[in-house]
């Protein structure tokens, strides 16, 4: 037997070997499609949204998030597909060879504008910067349905010390349900309940979170696009008028609470942590954290 046959001695370092390979993914066919007159090739399985992105066409989205399964319910991403009777959602429609797509036709602009008007006329959008920006872009007017248009206005739900639910601001994008459910946390504390205009996000029988399955990971807050879900610290500071994003710093660091290595984005204002989140594109967290990572930072704060 050669030298190599001997059991390793802790005294001798193991020699470096070539770096291990990661098996290549399955090769995908490439499809060519035409978007707004431009040809673009994308891999089979890609969505129209991804194809448009390749052409640097910015598509508005509200219910879409890279880390969640597309539910295509907000319909603000619709585009015109030649040969299709209705518009199609860019976020979830997979490309097929030869598709011809228009992302900025009259029809598309009208649908996007009306969808935004529908939302803004029924939901409080004060803390939804993205939605407000889209409204500007599509010249959407929330007032056009009159002062008596039904809204989802309702009192805030404050039933715990970590976060606040203000469903007056909820556009029912399903993101929180997905983050609480199969796409990340798998806790299923909330679901869409009811039907129609009264469909809403709820625990069973609207019981307080403290009686529900909620484990306060706050991953719902992490994906909420309108501020309907908000950390209590931010909520309190906004209420007191002290929340000031222009004075906040954002620092990337690593959560101290276990060995998984979750990346945190720590937002601080005036030397105090005011919010902790995680970047969506971090391979470990994909934006998700647990209760300790998202809320367990108060031990660093000077006592007030």
């Amino acid at each position: 037997m050669s030298e190599q046959a001997q059991a390793p001695s802790p005294l001798t370092p193991i020699p470096p070997a070539p770096a291990p390979e990661i098996p290549p993914g399955v090769a995908r066919r490439q499809f060519e499609i035409i978007i707004d007159g431009n040809r673009v090739a994308v891999a089979e399985g890609a969505t129209i949204l991804e194809a448009a992105k390749k052409l640097r066409i910015e598509t508005p989205t509200l219910c879409f998030l890279e880390t969640l399964t597309p539910v295509n319910v907000c319909r603000v991403c619709v585009v015109e597909l030649e040969g299709s009777r209705a518009l199609v959602p860019a976020c979830s429609r997979k490309v097929e060879a030869g598709m011809v797509i228009h992302t900025d036709s009259e029809r598309v602009r009208l649908s996007r504008r009306v969808v935004l008007e529908f939302l803004a006329s029924s939901v409080e959008v004060r803390t939804a910067p993205q939605l407000q920006e889209y409204m500007k872009r599509y010249a959407a007017r929330r007032e056009k349905f009159g002062p008596r248009a039904a809204t989802v206005a309702q009192p805030e739900k404050i039933d715990n010390e970590l976060y606040v639910r203000d469903y007056s601001k909820c556009i029912l994008c399903y993101k929180c349900v997905e983050a609480c459910g199969v796409d990340a946390q798998n806790t299923f504390a909330i679901s869409v309940a009811g039907r129609g205009f009264h469909a809403h996000i709820a625990t069973e029988f609207e019981i307080p979170l403290t009686d529900s399955a909620c484990v306060y990971c706050g991953n719902c807050i992490g994906v909420c696009p309108t501020g309907a879900l908000m950390g209590k610290t931010e909520y309190d500071m906004r209420k007191a008028g002290t929340w000031d994003e222009s004075r906040q710093t954002h620092t990337e660091t690593i959560c101290p609470y276990c060995g998984v290595g979750c990346e945190l984005t720590v937002d601080a204002q005036a030397g105090q942590i005011v919010k902790v989140s995680s970047p969506l594109d971090h391979s470990v967290t994909q934006g998700n954290l647990c209760i300790k990572g998202r809320f367990g930072w108060q031990f660093t704060q000077p006592k007030t």
Partner: peptide, 21 residues
């Protein structure tokens, strides 16, 4: 308005706005 499932925005809000109108 009463039968829309409420999933997508155009139908959820559109049906109630239509009735209001």
């Amino acid at each position: 308005r009463s039968e829309t499932c409420g999933q997508c925005v155009p139908c959820r809000v559109g049906t109630i706005r239509q009735e209001e109108l």
